[in-house]
Design a protein around this nucleic acid. Sequence first.
DNA 1: CGTGCCAGGTGCCGT
DNA 2: ACGGCACTTGGCACG
Lengths: 231, 231
Amino acid sequence: MRVVIARCAARYTGRLSATLPLATRAIMVKADGSVLLHSDGGSYKPLNWMSPPCTLRITDPDADAAAGGARQLWVVQHAKTDDRLEIEIHEVIADTEHELGVDPGLIKDGVEAHLQELLAEQITLLGEGHTLVRREYPTAIGPVDILARDSIGRAVAVEVKRRGDIDGVEQLTRYLELLNRDPLLAPVQGVFAAQEIKPQARVLAEDRGIRCLVLDYESMKGAEDLSSRLF
Amino acid sequence: MRVVIARCAARYTGRLSATLPLATRAIMVKADGSVLLHSDGGSYKPLNWMSPPCTLRITDPDADAAAGGARQLWVVQHAKTDDRLEIEIHEVIADTEHELGVDPGLIKDGVEAHLQELLAEQITLLGEGHTLVRREYPTAIGPVDILARDSIGRAVAVEVKRRGDIDGVEQLTRYLELLNRDPLLAPVQGVFAAQEIKPQARVLAEDRGIRCLVLDYESMKGAEDLSSRLF
DNA sequence: CGTGCCAGGTGCCGT
DNA sequence: ACGGCACTTGGCACG
């Protein structure tokens, strides 16, 4: 990985066009050729960047750019699209390179998959007497997170989300439409289950007869710990 | 901005939990206290990070960590939430700091806002005799990009996208449903306008009686330049 | 300040 | 390769 601190200007063309006036920034060049142009604030997102696969070519600036103070021109060209990032280097303040090696990668915990797993285990959170049919129940347009039956055997389709947004309600609506075409399942009740349900999503869901269920991840995790301690 | 190359391990807790085994990585500490932990590949997204506002506190590792080889413990704590990033530094390979100053920021061109603006100006692209009612026409569930009237006064709701995907069709469908409840507007015709419309989105749109309109950004921009030259 | 929507989204996993 | 979908999504603009 190469890190260059430089006064530079940049221009990106591709899916959109963007220009970056002259200023001091950090340029990170990764082993795969990808380039990140960071300012000293904002978020983790660079001001400009080029994702792999791409190649970096360093040349002399043309006469105009040189007259404007440019010392180098970096052209980062994407290998498959016509996305291109051009960086005009006016002054190099620091330039270091280090071998990092392959990263073992991140291990995550607590995402939607876990929430779905917990709800499947604690299926009666849907209501007294509910039983699990299966997780990831397949339909023509993709799997429903959870299919269950209520206490008197009626089908219940559940969409699990960490954050319950309008998109999720649309998704569940599409599944319900398909599931309701199956005479062995219809009529299928919909449940929109999330740690947090946005008001507009709730309105839309209830307008469509979909029940909303707010999940408490911590207490569900506690219940799991408790039940595992019983064995 | 401080850039440290170090052999390190990390742990994030907050919205989820994630751990990162020991490896050599680049750590970027920005002026606002935010921290980015980059590997030598992937995209612009760091392996772990902490967004501002947050504070970095550097301490000695506890006895266990020290026995495991840790030399420093970096704790990055978010100011408002309980998000926290802990980095165990085992070996510092490089450590540099530079003053970058405030960045003048990025100038973008060609995003959806501009496309919407151009279409509002060139509203007859919807068809002969169309007139603009307003951009960002408000509804209970959010603003419709463009509301117009056709040559004989019928309402037309337009959803503008750079890339026309199924989501956009769903969005427009929701708006149409609401707008059609307004007797002053109904019946409202839907137009899905995008630089590129995915086949599946086109099928869905046309199935719902929504007209698809492919926009040529370059030619629309050219028309704008021409009209501005007339003044 | 919450709420919805766009993003050069990126990444992961399925057909 | 394309499509669907989650993401510590982040970021912005508007009520």
